[in-house]
C-alpha cells in the first residue's frame, strides 16, 4: 500500500553528506556540460535538473552487486555508483576510451563493472530489463543482487513501464523502480502499480535522505522475498527548501575554508576531465564493425 515515510529517522549524517556532495558535483558537471552542448562541443545532452537529488540518493542506496538500469538522463546516478568524472566526460565526448566506446547518446553510460547500464532506446524499454534482471535474481536467490530501474514521469503511461510493473509484481522480482523528475501531473500511477502487486512508497524527490532510505528499505524488502517496490521520488512544482548547508554544517564540513575547498576540488576534477576528454581520440572508422556479434567469423562483409 502507499506510504509517506516519516522523516525523523533518516540515513546517517555521513550518508546525507555524501548525497549533498554528490548532488553538488552533479550540479557543477551539468552546468559545464550544458555549456559545452550549447557551444556544440558535445552532442545531445540530457540534463538531470532537480532529479539529480533522487538519482544520487537512489544510487547511493544500492550495493556493489546491484545493477542500475536507467536512461541517458541518469548519468548522475552513474556518478554516484562510482563512475568517475573522467570516465563520464569521455562518454559525453564520445571518445574511443569511454566505457561505451563512443557509441551511444551522451549520458548513456555503459559500465557493467560498476553495475550501470543506461539506455538511449525507447524511454521505458529498460524497465523491462530491470524486471527481468530482478526476476532472475529472485529465481536464483543465491546472491544479494537487486535491480534498480530509474524512470521519468513522462513514461509513466507508456506500455513498457506498465508491463514492467505487471511482470515484476507477478514474478516477485527483486527490483526497485524509482520515479524521478517533475511530478508531471501523473495521479493514477500509484493505483495501477499497487494493483499489479508493487508496494508504492512516496517521498519528496528533493529530499535526498528520504529517497535514500526509501530505496534502501525497498531493496531490503526485495531481498527478503517480499516483492518489488515503486519509490515515487518525483519532486513537486514548488521549489525545494534548501537544507544542504545545514547538513554539511551538522556534518562538520561547512566552513568558509571547507566550502572553498570542496568547490575547488569539484572545479579541478571537471577541468581535468574536460581537458582529458578534449585530448582523447575519437573511435576510428576501423572500429565500426567491432562487437556487432561475438564470433569473428560473423563479422559482416
Amino acid at each position: 500500500m502507499s506510504a509517506v515515510l516519516p522523516l525523523e529517522t533518516g540515513p546517517s549524517l555521513e550518508v546525507e553528506a555524501r548525497i549533498v556532495e554528490g548532488v553538488a558535483l552533479a550540479s557543477a558537471v551539468e552546468a559545464h556540460l550544458a555549456n559545452l552542448a550549447e557551444a556544440g562541443h558535445i552532442g545531445l545532452f540530457p540534463p538531470a535538473g532537480r532529479a539529480r537529488v533522487a538519482m544520487t540518493a537512489a544510487a547511493l542506496a544500492t550495493e556493489p552487486g546491484d545493477m542500475l538500469f536507467g536512461t541517458a538522463r541518469d548519468w548522475v546516478a552513474a556518478l554516484a555508483r562510482g563512475v568517475t568524472v573522467d570516465d563520464l566526460f569521455l562518454q559525453m565526448f564520445a571518445r574511443a576510451s569511454a566505457s561505451g566506446g563512443g557509441r551511444t547518446l551522451p549520458g548513456a553510460v555503459q559500465d557493467p563493472a560498476r553495475g550501470v547500464v543506461l539506455s538511449a532506446g525507447a524511454p521505458a524499454a529498460h524497465l523491462l530489463h530491470a524486471a527481468g534482471f530482478g526476476h532472475a535474481a529472485a529465481l536464483r536467490g543465491g546472491d544479494e543482487r537487486v535491480a534498480i530501474g530509474l524512470f521519468g514521469s513522462a513514461v509513466a503511461f507508456s506500455q513498457d513501464a506498465h508491463r514492467a510493473f505487471t511482470l515484476a509484481g507477478v514474478a516477485g522480482a527483486r527490483v526497485v523502480f524509482v520515479a524521478r523528475g517533475a511530478d508531471g501531473g501523473v495521479g493514477s500511477l500509484h493505483r495501477a502499480a499497487e494493483g499489479w502487486g508493487l508496494r508504492v512508497v512516496t517521498v519528496d524527490g528533493d529530499d535526498g535522505g528520504a529517497v535514500f532510505r526509501a530505496v534502501q528499505r525497498a531493496r531490503d524488502r526485495a531481498l527478503a522475498g517480499k516483492g518489488p517496490t515503486l519509490v515515487d521520488a518525483r519532486h513537486g512544482d514548488a521549489p525545494a527548501v534548501p537544507h544542504d548547508a545545514l547538513v554539511l554544517q551538522r556534518a562538520g564540513r561547512l566552513s568558509s575554508e571547507a566550502e572553498r575547498a570542496v568547490d575547488a576540488e569539484i572545479r579541478a576534477a571537471i577541468m581535468t576531465a574536460r581537458s582529458a576528454a578534449d585530448g582523447a581520440a575519437a573511435p576510428g572508422p576501423e572500429t565500426l564493425p567491432e562487437h556487432v556479434r561475438a564470433e569473428a567469423a560473423h563479422e559482416d562483409r
Binding site: 530489463h129 530482478g134 526476476h135 532472475a136
Partner: peptide
C-alpha cells in the same frame, strides 16, 4: 517452474524480461 516460466501473452514483455535475465547471467 524456476526454469520453465509461464509468462503473460505479451511479446515485448517476454523479450524484455529475457534481456534482463541474460544480463543477470542466465
Amino acid at each position: 517452474k524456476e526454469r520453465v516460466i509461464d509468462m503473460p501473452l505479451d511479446p515485448a514483455g517476454v523479450v524484455g524480461t529475457a534481456i534482463g535475465m541474460a544480463l543477470y547471467g542466465l
